[in-house]
Each structure stands twice: as C-alpha cells, then as structure tokens.
Design a protein around this nucleic acid. Structure first.
Lengths: 238, 238
DNA sequence: CGGACTATTGAGACTCCTCAACTAACGTGG
DNA sequence: CCACGTTAGTTGAGGAGTCTCAATAGTCCG
C-alpha cells in the first residue's frame, strides 16, 4: 500500500491509483509544479464536515471538485425513492460530472473532507490553453471509465456475498488501516446502494463471509481480511 | 430522430448524440475542417464484415477506433465463461479503451462496419499539440462516463421486463428504421450479456412486453413501438 | 437441402427482496 | 458524564423473480 496516499497534500498530484493490490504504480501521472500552481490559483480549498451536501443533482454545474482528504459519495435518488450510489471518491479523485450545464448526480461528504473547488468555465479555458494539463484530465476521465467497467462486472454477479467480497477487495486498495484491516467509512445502506442490494442482503452477506472465515468485521466501520487468498479467489470467481 | 445520424460520412463529426428521444442536440460538438483533416491523415479507413474481431482483450493496444457506419460490440468473457457486453457502439462512437498498454476488452463487428483506425501514440502526440481537438475527445470520454452511469441505473433494476424496456428505448435513439420501428442488429444473447440477464430471461421479458401491448417484435431483429407513452412510463419507473 | 446455431417455452430450485420485529450504536442535551 | 431518543443494523419468515436444466421450434448459411 502506498503510504503517501493518506498524506494530506495541497492539491495532491492527480495520480492514477492502482485498482488492485498487485497493480503497479509505474504509470502514475503527476503534475508539474507549474501546472499545480495554475490549478491552485484557479481553485478554492474547502473543508467540510461529514454529511455536508457538496452539490445537488440537477443544480447548475459551476464547479469541478478534487478530493484532497476524506471520502465523498456521488449518488442519486431514483424515481422509486431508492438511492443509488454511483461512486465513493477518495484522495485525488475528480468529481462533478455534468450534462447540459447541470450536475447529473448529488455529492455528499461521508467523513471530514478537504477538497479543491475549480470553476468549470475557467478550468475549461485553462485546459484549452494547456494541452499537457488537459491530457492529465483526459487520462483521469479515461481511468474513471475503466473503473466503471469494473463496476459493471460487479453488478453482473448474482450472488450478494461475491459482490460484497469484490467491494471489500476494492476498498482494501484505498483505505488500508495497516495489517489487513480495511476501513469502511460509509454506512451499510451506502454499501447496499452501491452494490445494488438491499441493506438486509448486505448484512447477511457480511455474516456469510464471516462464517466462511474470509473476513472478520471489527465494529461497523472496519473489516479484517482473515484469509486473503480465499477472499481473492471468491473475488475472481465471477 | 436526426436523419444525418445515419448518413455515411468519412470520419463523421464526433457529435454528442442525444441519449433520449427528447434530449436536444444544441450542445453538439463538431470538428473544424482542419481538425478532421488532421485525424483523417493520421488514420486508416477499414471496412469489416459481421463477426470480424477488431481486437482481443489483453492484446497490445496500438489503435483507437471510431465507428463510421455499422454496429460494434465491446465485450469480455468472464472467468466463468459467461460473456459480458460492455457497450454497443454506433456511428461516431469512439472505442479502444486500454490500460497499461493493453485493451481491457474485446471488440467485434455485429453488422458490416466501416471504421477509422487511429494509431494511439500518434494520436496522443497530436492531442498534446492541439488542445481544442483534445477537448473534443475529453468531452467525448466524459459523455461515455455519463452513459455508463445510465447503464448502472439499468443494472440496478430487478425486473427483466424493465431492463429490456430501457434497452429498447435506448436503442430507439440510435437505430430507428422510421415510424416507431427499431432495429436490433445484435442477437438475444448479446442483449442478455448487456443487460446482465440470461438468454431465457430476455426471451420471456420480450414476450411480457408484447403481452402488455407495449411493443411488437417483427422477426428477431426489429421491434415496433406500439404504445410509446406506456413504454416510456415503464422505462421511467426505476 | 441439411446442419449448426439461435431462440422459445416449460418445470423446479435457489436467492434475493419485502415486511416485520428486535438490537445496537450514536449523539444530543440535561 | 449519563440518559434518552433517534438512527443504523441484525435477524427471521414468506413471497416474487430470475437462473438452471431440458426439450422443442425456428433461422441462417453453406
């Protein structure tokens, strides 16, 4: 695990985070000092408390955001009233997807969050002048697209336990507390809304993984990976 | 329906296609003549037959492709052997997503397809020089990301009939044969692999939609929208 | 025209969802 | 610091829907 990923840097370099534990970090993309300065000049640093709404769905999209520290969820309420979590966003993640000038989903802080807020029109102007900087953004968005495909694989699994296992393996790469303990800052409901399951199914799937001896939940917001090889096997058994 | 979307133009302008019937086309993005020329000079035009493999998953990713005419599927075989279709690609769609120099999925022609093949390294070099052109690509990839979120909504529906209805509404925007008849060039298996269902469930869902009087299948590769308001209502009832 | 592939239809098993009751944790205020 | 109320999570029973397995029908292509 990359220890620097938990450091609090001002506008930390946009780096392509490895998706799985064994992925290497060689194609990490970093900004030059000048580019970082350009962005810092453009943006505003914000600090928000847990549960703070960062923006609402369908609101005019004036800003793009970058997470510096903490966890954000991007979600939307469906017509049926059920919430759907599109993504959990961590350090260096970019968010604020818009369509026709409006946000397509809502964003809310899960933990204490530090983030940078970049005015969209000014950012667009800057990107059109600085092709190298824009290429970093293009790479970042392309990366999001790959992540989204992995999400598709997850949603195609019919078994709740397998989905949860994939989620835990995925979380293990971003919030390791050290020595195989993974932090789960979000609620079970958020996990359910991300996995396309009900709260009850997530709860039962968690018990199932425990009973099989793959993991051990330590309170509601942490899991210990007990048998990583077998967990990895379950994750791979799509 | 935009009639020009079915015209066979050489490297047709990358245009953001409206996702749903009532979406307006005002934010369409077009290339300047010079930009189009740059890309045409870089690329090679290819013509392939149905079922032609365009590239394999994990193969070295040397090219990016743009569909000019026809339908392509982007898919991957899961470990279980079940195929998963990530996307159906139509005129003006960009594909060839790579990670660490290799394609993350396979691409195969469904119909007769005309496409442009752009060498990735040369394209990257061009984009780093021409920020305006790159911005078109950035917009395009961002658009793909939004589509992918809509796909997530689809996969969260528990009911097979609702999923199929969403798929049909989605297809109606890209391959209208005129007068409420929608072409379905892909097989039922492809549709199943896209919707995260089995072939049998798709078949039954199709019968269900017919029985309710929403659509009428005309052979295997066309559907007539019989009751559009009620179909739209079903699509919206997520 | 024949063969292989694609699609439809049926019966039964399995799993998740719904509804409901109960338990645990959090945080707010006294 | 503790008590209490609210929110979050667990567990159970029953029902709905898809998946699996299997047999049949239809299509496309050589």
């Amino acid at each position: 695990m990359d220890p620097s990923s938990r450091a609090n840097q001002s506008l930390a370099p946009f780096r392509i985070r490895p998706l799985f534990r064994d992925a290497d970090d060689s194609n990490a993309i970093r900004l030059t000092d000048r580019q970082r300065e350009e962005l810092v000049n453009l943006g505003t640093r914000l600090q928000v408390r847990p549960r703070t709404m960062i923006y609402l769905a369908d609101a005019p999209a004036e800003f793009v955001f970058v997470v510096t520290e903490g966890v954000v969820k991007s979600y939307r309420e469906l017509a049926s009233g059920k919430p759907l979590v599109y993504a959990f966003l961590f350090s260096r993640d970019l968010f604020g997807l818009a369509e026709a000038g409006r946000y397509v989903n809502a964003a809310r802080a899960i933990t204490d969050v530090t983030l940078y807020r970049l005015p969209m029109t000014q950012l667009a102007a800057l990107l059109k002048q600085d092709a190298e900087l824009q290429y970093v953004f293009l790479t970042k968005v392309t990366h999001e697209l790959r992540e989204s495909q992995r999400r598709t694989i997850l949603l195609n699994r019919p078994d709740a336990a397998g989905r949860l296992a994939m989620f835990l393996a995925w979380m293990a790469d971003r919030t390791a507390l050290g020595d195989q303990v993974v932090a789960l800052p979000m609620t079970r409901s958020d996990i359910a809304a991300f996995l396309g399951l009900t709260l009850e199914s997530v709860s039962r799937a968690a018990r199932t993984l425990e009973r099989r001896g793959l993991v051990a939940f330590e309170g509601r917001h942490a899991v210990r990976i007990v048998d990583e090889p077998r967990l990895a096997a379950l994750v791979a058994a799509v």
